[in-house]
């Protein structure tokens, strides 16, 4: 019955024995990246670059852990798909939610005035928009209308 595909045999997975030396090398890289991320934290890159650098290093560290410590580099395509699925669906969630938050005030907000001194900040001018608006927070130090995302400082 050799021609009958046996799903069990097809999906056969092996245990991968990786020499301990490789683990130590990966650990070394993780240490270096940790030091790098701490050093980079006190440096003003400008714009969103601080976040990009911090998350970039974190992603590199995470990839090292996933690929080597968790053996994904040596595993079946199915397992890689499962790993990817978790992150892809998280990405979808963030992407669409943020799409709402960044585009919410395109119609109603005049050009942003971040530089306006705190005490004299004028009440935000808003045109009426569709649907109910979230209640405005009461306070004197509104730097800008809430709901506006700060694109690069």
């Amino acid at each position: 019955m050799a021609h009958i595909t046996d799903p069990i045999q097809r999906d056969h997975e092996e245990h991968h024995v990786i020499p301990p030396r490789n683990y130590v090398i990966v650990f070394g890289l993780l240490v270096v990246l940790t030091i790098l991320t701490v050093l980079a934290a006190n440096f003003q890159f400008g714009g969103l670059l601080n976040e990009v650098v911090a998350l970039g290093i974190a992603t590199m560290k995470a990839s090292l852990v996933i690929l080597f410590f968790m053996h994904v580099r040596y595993s079946t395509p199915l397992l890689r798909l499962v790993v990817a699925a978790g992150f892809i669906f998280f990405g979808i969630m963030v992407l669409f939610t943020m799409a709402d938050f960044v585009s919410r005030d395109w119609r109603s907000t005049p050009p942003r005035q971040i530089v306006a001194p705190v005490e004299q900040a004028p009440p935000p001018v808003t045109e009426p928009t569709l649907g109910p608006q979230p209640t405005q927070a009461v306070g004197q130090d509104e730097v800008r209308p809430r709901g506006t995302v700060n694109p690069g400082r």
């Binding site: 991320t37 701490v38 050093l39 934290a41 006190n42 601080n50 976040e51 911090a54 998350l55 290093i57 974190a58 560290k61 995470a62 852990v65 996933i66 410590f69």
Partner: peptide
């Protein structure tokens, strides 16, 4: 568990400077 911490550390500890 390690992986989660790798992201929590910069986000909660470092983004205003170390």
């Amino acid at each position: 568990v390690d992986l989660v911490w790798i992201f929590l550390f910069p986000l909660l500890y470092l983004l205003g400077g170390a």
